[in-house]
Simulated assay, not measured.
Amino acid sequence: MQRRHGTTAANPPWRLPPPLFSARCKACWYTAAALALVVGSFWSLDLQWGAFVSMDALRSMGRFVAEFYPPDFSPPFVAKVAWSAVETLAMSALGTLLAAVAGLALALPASRRHEGDAARFRSVARMLLNALRAVPELVWAALLLIAAGLGPFAGTLALALHTSGVLGRLFAEAMENAPRDAATALRTQGVTGWRVLAYATLPQVLPQLLSYTLYRWENNIRAAAVLGVVGAGGLGQLLAFHMGLFHMGKTATVLIAMLLLVAFVDGLSFAMRRWMK
Rank of each mutant, 00 (worst) to 15 (best):
L150A: 09
L170N: 14
L150F: 15
L128C: 14
T156M: 08
L157M: 09
L128H: 05
L161E: 08
T156N: 00
L143K: 06
A158Q: 01
Q189G: 11
N130K: 13
A183C: 10
L129Y: 10
A131I: 15
I146C: 08
L128W: 10
A134N: 00
L129E: 13
T163R: 05
R195K: 13
F121T: 09
A185D: 10
A182P: 13
E137W: 08
L150G: 00
L144E: 01
L161Y: 06
G168R: 11
V139C: 04
W194C: 06
L143V: 12
L144N: 14
R180A: 12
R195E: 08
A134I: 01
R195G: 10
S164A: 06
L128P: 05
P136W: 01
L161R: 01
T192W: 04
G151S: 04
V124D: 05
L170W: 06
G168A: 09
L186V: 02
W140S: 07
L145F: 15
R126P: 10
R180W: 02
L167M: 14
A148Y: 14
L138T: 03
N130Q: 11
V191C: 02
T184H: 10
L186H: 09
F121M: 11
L132W: 08
L161K: 08
A183M: 02
A141K: 05
A158N: 05
A119G: 03
P179A: 07
V196I: 15
L167S: 07
N130P: 00
Q189W: 13
G155P: 12
A142I: 14
W194K: 07
A178I: 02
A185H: 04
